[in-house]
């Protein structure tokens, strides 16, 4: 997996300076052997989710940031920092699928094989047992080191209390009890090793769980084009647009544009454009009207994807 995070950040810092550079590094990273591990996109209803940190790292390395929606393991009862799972936009999931970075993984509800299941249960119980033993030993070790440390500190003070502690230390091997409830267990976030069933992955694009309609196609064209130009995108629902467009990783940079996706022949009342343009200037962002050009219009070959036309509204004064 992405062992060296510095490497995957390179494209990000270059992105806004030279778009072409970014494209090159991106294709390079795709050729790296580690890129071969496919990202598991699990669907909850129609929402694409990522569960494994390795998958999330891989996605971020190709500029797909997503949004965290779960409770953070470290402090679950707050909303400032959230944790896994990572929710993807439909467009992000489609991009992963199209670039063969990710694949939709379907979970089967129950697998009927009783034998396999009871083997898994046995494996789980055995792992608990061995974990208990190991933690028992670790706890004993821990206690001993604490006592030894106290002895070392107290050596030059009084002999009596030092002796008492030394006695306790000697008796520890017999007297030490590590109760079963004190054992630490892991509450797995992603599906764990002794999972009920292996996931099924669908490699066929026809198996994609979300139907692609006109609107999704328009949005996806715009998303892919802006991403290929090196921008980072997140959802812009609260700004009344389709995407927020960032010049670098959204962790560190402010968004510059609000992208509004419209098909070429779509009519929009001027009042709507004015409303969103006003809102955009209030939050110091430029509103982009983005319309994918159909292939026939661009006059390019069928295999080449159409371009996207970007326009923004500017007030002009006539004197």
């Amino acid at each position: 997996m992405d062992g060296d995070p510095a490497e995957m950040n390179m494209p990000q810092s270059l992105a806004s300076i030279e778009v072409k550079d970014d494209m090159d590094t991106r294709s390079e990273s795709e050729n790296q052997p580690e890129g071969d591990a496919l990202v598991d996109i699990s669907f909850c209803g129609s929402t694409p989710l990522l569960w494994k940190v390795s998958d999330m790292r891989r996605c971020r390395s190709v500029g797909v940031s997503g949004a965290l929606v779960g409770a953070l393991a470290r402090q679950p009862r707050q909303n400032v920092r959230l944790g896994r799972p990572l929710e993807l936009l439909q467009e992000e999931a489609l991009l992963l699928e199209e670039t063969s970075t990710g694949v939709a993984s379907q979970h089967t509800q129950d697998c009927g094989d009783e034998e396999m299941h009871s083997a898994a249960v046995r494996q789980y119980e055995a792992s608990l047992e061995s974990s208990y033993k190991e933690q028992c030993a670790l706890a004993l070790q821990d206690k001993k080191t604490v006592l030894k440390k106290i002895i070392n500190e107290k050596e030059n003070v009084t002999d009596d209390s030092g002796n008492a502690i030394r006695d306790r230390l000697n008796a520890l091997d017999q007297a030490f009890r590590f109760p079963w409830p004190a054992m630490a267990v892991q509450l797995c976030t992603a599906r764990a090793g002794f999972s009920h069933c292996p996931e099924e992955r669908s490699f066929l694009s026809t198996d994609w769980p979300v139907p692609r309609d006109e609107r999704l196609n328009t949005r996806f064209c715009v998303y892919r084009d802006l991403r290929n130009k090196g921008f980072y995108l997140t959802s812009a629902g609260k700004f009344g647009g389709d995407f927020l467009v960032y010049p670098g990783d959204p962790l560190r940079f402010h968004a510059h544009f609000i992208a509004l996706c419209l098909s070429m022949d779509e009519e929009l009342p001027l009042s709507d454009i004015l409303a969103i343009a006003r809102l955009g200037s209030n939050v110091k962002k430029t509103v982009l009207l983005c319309s994918p050009q159909s292939r026939s219009e661009t006059g390019k070959d069928e295999s080449v994807e159409g371009d996207v036309v970007y326009s923004s509204l500017q007030w002009s004064s006539m004197v």
Binding site: P5, V53, A182, M183, A184
Partner: peptide, 14 residues
């Protein structure tokens, strides 16, 4: 970011 996200929930059984 990755340290925070990679952290797994660990609780005492009790």
């Amino acid at each position: 970011h990755w340290t925070l996200l990679a952290e797994e929930r660990v609780e005492r059984l009790g």
